[in-house]
Simulated assay, not measured.
Amino acid sequence: MIGKGGFGEVFKAILDDRKVVAVKKLRGNYAKAKLGFENEILLISQITHRNLLSLLGWSGEGSDLLLILEYMPNGSLDKFLWAKGLAHLHKESHFRIVHRDIKSSNILLDDHFQPKIADFGLAMFQQEDKSHVTTKFAGTLGYTPPEYVLYGHLSDKVDTFSFGIVILEIISGQKCTSRSFDASSTNGLLEYAWKLYETKNHMKLVDETMDVNQYKEEHVMNMIEIALLCTQSPASKRPTMPEVVFMLSSDPSFGERQLTRPNFIFNHWRMEIGHS
Rank of each mutant, 00 (worst) to 15 (best):
D16P: 15
I226M: 04
D119R: 07
L56M: 10
R27T: 15
S155Q: 05
S131Y: 06
F95E: 05
D111P: 09
T231M: 02
E70S: 11
K103R: 13
S105P: 15
N39G: 03
M72W: 03
F264W: 03
R100F: 04
S233M: 07
G3Y: 15
I117A: 00
K175C: 00
P146D: 09
V220Q: 01
A87C: 06
K157M: 03
K12G: 00
G28W: 15
L81T: 12
T134R: 13
Q214E: 14
P145Y: 00
I97Y: 05
F137S: 01
T135M: 13
S185G: 03
Y143V: 04
N263V: 04
S178N: 13
L53Q: 04
I170F: 01
P145F: 01
P115W: 06
S236R: 13
I165S: 00
S93E: 03
V220W: 09
E61S: 13
F163E: 00
L205P: 14
I44L: 08
P242I: 01
K25E: 12
H153V: 11
D211M: 10
T231N: 03
Y143E: 00
D64K: 14
R179F: 02
I167N: 07
S162A: 15
E243N: 08
I107R: 09
K25P: 11
K130N: 05
I68P: 13
P73C: 00
P145W: 01
H88K: 01
Y197A: 00
S276Y: 15
E272A: 06
P252G: 01
F181C: 01
A138R: 15
H99K: 10
T135Y: 13
T186F: 05
S59W: 11
L69G: 07
S178L: 12
L15V: 08
T199H: 14
N187S: 12
G142H: 08
I2A: 02
S184Q: 13
E70Y: 05
L150E: 06
D78S: 14
G173W: 11
H88W: 14
N29I: 02
F113D: 02
A22G: 14
Q174V: 03
F120K: 08
S233G: 03
H90A: 00
F37H: 08
M203R: 11
W82E: 11
P252I: 02
S155N: 05
E70W: 09
V212E: 04
A22I: 13
P115R: 06
K195S: 05
L168G: 06
G139K: 08
R238V: 09
S276V: 11
F137L: 10
G5T: 11
I97G: 04
M124L: 12
M221L: 07
